[in-house]
Design a protein around this nucleic acid. Structure first.
Lengths: 242, 242
DNA sequence: TAATATCATGACTTTTCAGTCATGATATTA
DNA sequence: TAATATCATGACTGAAAAGTCATGATATTA
């Protein structure tokens, strides 16, 4: 132990570091509790590399064959790592999914709650719109940071909340709840036509998801910019107040 | 063989019978080729019962735990039948999924193709609208016949086209293709606003799916009639020509 | 550099599941 | 009713996947 420069007990979360521009987009589920070596030492870097490699490999396999069908052996083989190493860093497949989605979930929940706060403080309809736009920006950026994660989410989010898919379903529940809540605010503020806000919320979320999937599956939707514009037009004219 | 009153070679499909009001909503994948006993005899009824029971049990399990996670043992246990019996009627889990969706797929494909025909023959925009409405009716009725099948479809249709999920993905591809094709016709006929028809199609399909899921998951969307009406309003005003 | 603790490895054990088959039960037919 | 073929059963086999662990390798620390 000695007088090491850092207190291991309350260091920042192992994989997240300080969220720099290319901080890993996931958090290792369980780096062994006792981790010797200084923060930037070789051991530390090795651990980083292993967890990152495993997560990346797992993401690829998940996308190709579905979370349920992928085995730990496949993940380790794709990562070029022995099976035992997998179990050093993760308890099971589910924890990898957890690690993959943790940062996205955190970012989204923060974005939602900040948007809700802005809406509560807003005095004019211009301020309301600005809050929604800011939210859309943040979500878009979060999605763009690791698009394959979004694809995995879309692919798995409807399955039963069982086993490894659990964290994905939780993310979906949180997105659904936020969409409904935000829509209800908009509705109360008469930003929306007089349609049931829940229905509006689900319809819009569904439309966005469907277009994203089409995009990911290589459908030719024209330029992303044009597609996004078309979507916005549809939504505004379909559900927005005249 | 003797002079049995029926020619076994070209009898109607084993499970479908004549599609009466409560004809089974699936087709057994493989009733053993040689099947003794007259068409309505005890043996025949037993076979019917077994396949139907297995399909129903499988559907329940699939909904609860997802197609991939469900094992043959679980299905047979839920159906109250020995494992060996399963393999008498189905080659594997995938064939059960096949059997579950076969009639729905058939009905949908027929509905799509007839709608396409009606559109081709249509001379006025009123006739065009009528064709779309007829399609919507048929699809709605097909869905209402076995709603849990629709739920299973929604739950599984986004997963990778692997293993037992294959037939579900095929159904999705056919739905997607039809939606795009029909929307393109509508677009050419200036029934739709000048938005890319593909984008319109995906958005609408996505919105419908999302609302269906919300409904199945017990969200309170008000009365189904009102919800449907709200959806139609949104779609018409969001994508329809003014 | 030597001592020590963590780390990586893949063979091994255990568990789970798919698919088979000998056996007794049941419907059909002569 | 007797003879016969199909049918239902669940114990069994083999394969696949999960999860473990003794061993040698590597980084850290004194």
């Amino acid at each position: 132990m000695s007088t090491s420069p850092k207190q291991p007990s309350e260091a920042e979360a192992p994989g997240a570091a300080d969220a720099g521009p290319d901080a890993p987009w996931f958090e290792p589920g369980r780096v062994p509790e006792q981790r010797p070596g200084k923060a930037g030492g070789k051991r530390d870097r090795n651990r980083q590399e292993r967890t990152l490699g495993l997560c990346a490999a797992a993401l690829g396999e998940f996308l190709e064959r579905g979370v349920e069908r992928v085995t730990v052996d496949e993940i380790t083989k794709a990562a070029g790592v022995a099976k035992g190493s997998f179990y050093r860093y993760f308890e099971d497949k589910g924890q990898v999914v957890d690690a993959l989605f943790a940062p996205l979930r955190k970012e989204m929940e923060q974005a939602f709650s900040e948007c809700a706060g802005a809406l509560a403080r807003a005095g004019s309809s211009a301020e309301l719109s600005a809050a929604y736009q800011a939210l859309a920006m943040r979500l878009g950026q979060a999605a763009l940071r690791e698009p394959r994660l979004v694809k995995l989410y879309l692919q798995e989010c409807r399955g039963p909340a069982e086993g490894a898919r659990l964290p994905i379903r939780q993310l979906r529940d949180s997105i659904t709840a936020a969409a409904v809540a935000l829509t209800e605010v908009a509705h109360r503020q008469h930003l929306l036509r007089d349609l049931p806000p829940k229905i509006t919320a689900f319809a819009v979320v569904g439309a966005v998801e469907s277009l994203l999937i089409a995009f990911f599956e290589g459908e030719d939707l024209g330029s992303p910019t044009d597609a996004a514009q078309a979507l916005v037009r549809m939504v505004l004219e379909g559900v927005g107040q005249r």
